[in-house]
């Protein structure tokens, strides 16, 4: 093998991975301000209007009306992007709506190799049917276990809340926020929502637990929560720190271009070093 063929083979591989040099965690740099939703669980009355509105807007079957569905903790499902749970806490029964958190730097989108999961510039994390190959790596990676997969379908989709992306594009607000009779769900610019959350906490400090869930969790999320009780009691997953999830595999991804450039050079040098004095060159080696 000569230097040219080697360079060529290397080039092919290198070219495919070059974008890594410019790679930046999804959403780290955005031109527009993200939108988000503030859920104030102290206001939620558990009427599940948001659940019904969600199903209706997105064409899913109407959720079970029976109140007893609240008896056990539910998760979003392939036919319910958003659900309401009842938690019995130190401060009595509390209702909390659960759905995709629309992370600032979503694990799901950075996991997705086809960019089917996409953090839009506006903030909502959406899923695009034409791109997804159904590997379910987004499900493995999402710290909130949000994306759901249609295991029963030969043409399965990933189902999860899109923050009503299609409605936003038409200038409307998310269906759940519109439907809530108790004003527990506020849609707006994320930065404004954080301010509003702190305003509520400071104006009624004894009503609120002093924390805005989602301001820093998992690197910050589009959905923000207020509560009267600590958030562990509202079924939020344990162990979620403030580092954004894509950071966890960043070191590895940064090492890739380095290995890709240094390793071949090192191996080639090593191979030359072990070449014996009288050994034929590579060209003569092959049966000549």
């Amino acid at each position: 093998m000569n230097r040219r063929t080697f360079a060529r083979t290397l080039g092919v591989a290198g070219a495919s991975l070059l974008p890594l040099h410019h790679r930046r965690a999804v959403g780290e740099e955005h031109r527009k301000e993200f939108v988000g939703v503030l859920v104030d669980t102290t206001r939620c009355v558990g009427c599940r209007s948001c659940e019904f509105a969600c199903a209706e807007t997105h064409g899913f079957p109407e959720p079970n009306q029976d109140e007893r569905v609240l008896d056990r903790e539910r998760t979003p499902s392939v036919t319910q992007w958003s659900i309401v749970n009842r938690y019995s806490t130190a401060g009595g029964d509390v209702f909390a709506k659960k759905q995709c958190m629309h992370c600032n730097q979503p694990a799901c989108a950075s996991a997705c190799l086809t960019k089917a999961m996409l953090k839009t510039e506006e903030g909502p994390v959406i899923w695009r049917e034409g791109k997804c190959m159904g590997c379910r790596f987004c499900m493995v990676s999402c710290p909130f276990d949000i994306p759901k997969f249609e295991y029963d379908s030969p043409i399965p989709k990933i189902q999860k809340c899109t923050l009503c992306w299609d409605r936003l594009e038409r200038g409307k607000i998310p269906a759940c926020a519109e439907a809530c009779p108790a004003e527990a769900i506020t849609f707006g610019k994320r930065a404004d929502l954080i301010k509003e959350a702190y305003r509520r906490i400071s104006s009624q400090p004894d009503q609120y637990h002093q924390h805005v869930y989602g301001e820093h969790e998992a690197g910050g999320t589009g959905y923000l929560y207020l509560s009267a009780v600590p958030f562990e009691q509202l079924g939020f997953p344990q162990g979620i720190e403030s580092t954004a999830y894509p950071e966890l595999s960043k070191d590895y991804l940064y090492a890739v271009p380095i290995v890709l450039t240094l390793w071949p050079a090192f191996l080639l040098a090593l191979s030359n070093a072990t070449k014996k004095e009288n050994e034929p060159t590579d060209h003569e080696m092959h049966h000549e």
Binding site: P19, V26, K131, R136
Partner: peptide, 19 residues
């Protein structure tokens, strides 16, 4: 789940390079 889309990351119409 959707193996027919396996070509997407290969033909380059959607490179999820951070993945």
């Amino acid at each position: 789940g959707r193996p027919w889309n396996v070509i997407n990351p290969i033909i380059g119409n959607s490179f999820g390079v951070s993945s």
